[in-house]
């Protein structure tokens, strides 16, 4: 049954920098869903994603991927990392052609060379960048670069895609294209998405489940409509109704 299988779980996860910025007791993400993580600036959203992507070691606690505790280092970490990927808010494109960028993850996984080009073409068409394969990635506009980063992330069909504000600073047509792509991929391949967004309207448009993070803690989790129409916590209500000052 779709949506019942747990893909990722965290237990007693915390992160301390100068102060504690994240403290979560237990939370599981189900396979095949689109999660929206919302919350005010500094709530710990990016930190949460970075821990999930094993880019940063947690101060305490554990992460379980498909039921197995993951380690931060070595081949085991690499194996887990290869099943997920993250798109940063300001993605870095490599100083090479668009197609080399999109093919990077495939190359890292020793995907057959002769099939790579075809895959790249299909993906570029999907993100509306047909004919861009040989363009120098450094010459792309912000929206084009963001779409290349997305194509690069989904090229190797990860089970889980972490997105940190994937459409911040983009114009409406780019936003629509990216949201459509997320919905299509989710429907066609069952890819799980965890998307941090400042934009509560975006969360409402595409997320099935919303997590409200505040001062490093999960305040409320629920089906999207419920979070927006009938939030249980006063802070959630303030946030989704635009009354939280930050």
């Amino acid at each position: 049954m779709r949506g019942e299988e747990i893909i990722l779980e965290v237990q007693n996860l915390s992160k301390v920098y100068d102060k504690e910025v994240l403290k979560l007791e237990k939370f599981s993400f189900q396979r095949g869903k689109i999660y929206g993580i919302i919350g005010p600036s500094g709530a710990g959203k990016s930190t949460f994603l970075r821990l999930l992507n094993l880019l940063e070691p947690p101060t305490t606690g554990s992460i379980y991927f498909k039921g197995k505790a993951v380690s931060m280092n070595g081949d085991a970490a690499l194996a887990v990392r290869r099943e997920m990927t993250m798109v940063f808010q300001k993605p870095l494109l490599f100083r090479s052609s668009v197609s080399e960028n999109v093919a990077y993850g495939l190359k890292a996984r020793r995907f057959p060379k002769e099939k790579t080009q075809e895959r790249v073409e299909i993906l570029l068409a999907k993100v509306g960048l047909k004919g861009f394969a040989n363009r120098n990635a450094g010459t792309l506009s912000g929206g084009e670069a963001q779409r290349v980063a997305l194509a690069r992330a989904v090229a190797f069909e990860p089970a889980l895609l972490l997105l940190d504000e994937p459409t911040a600073n983009l114009d409406p047509s780019n936003v629509e294209l990216i949201e459509r792509l997320i919905l299509d991929l989710n429907r066609e391949t069952g890819m799980t998405f965890i998307m941090v967004t400042h934009n509560i309207f975006q969360a409402r448009r595409i997320a099935q489940e919303v997590v409200f993070l505040h001062e490093g803690r999960i305040v409320e989790v629920g089906e999207t409509e419920k979070i927006f129409t009938d939030p249980q916590d006063q802070r959630t209500r303030d946030f989704v109704e635009g009354r939280m000052i930050y």
Binding site: L78, T85, F94, A108
Partner: peptide, 29 residues
């Protein structure tokens, strides 16, 4: 100045240690 971001981008795309290091050097060529 840019190495950390390059390193994390490579890692998140599934690069191993060697490919990650090579990518960082190549990007800073």
């Amino acid at each position: 100045s840019r190495g950390k971001t390059i390193q994390e981008t490579a890692l998140t795309l599934g690069a191993g240690k060697l490919l990650t290091a090579w990518t960082v050097v190549r990007e800073s060529r």
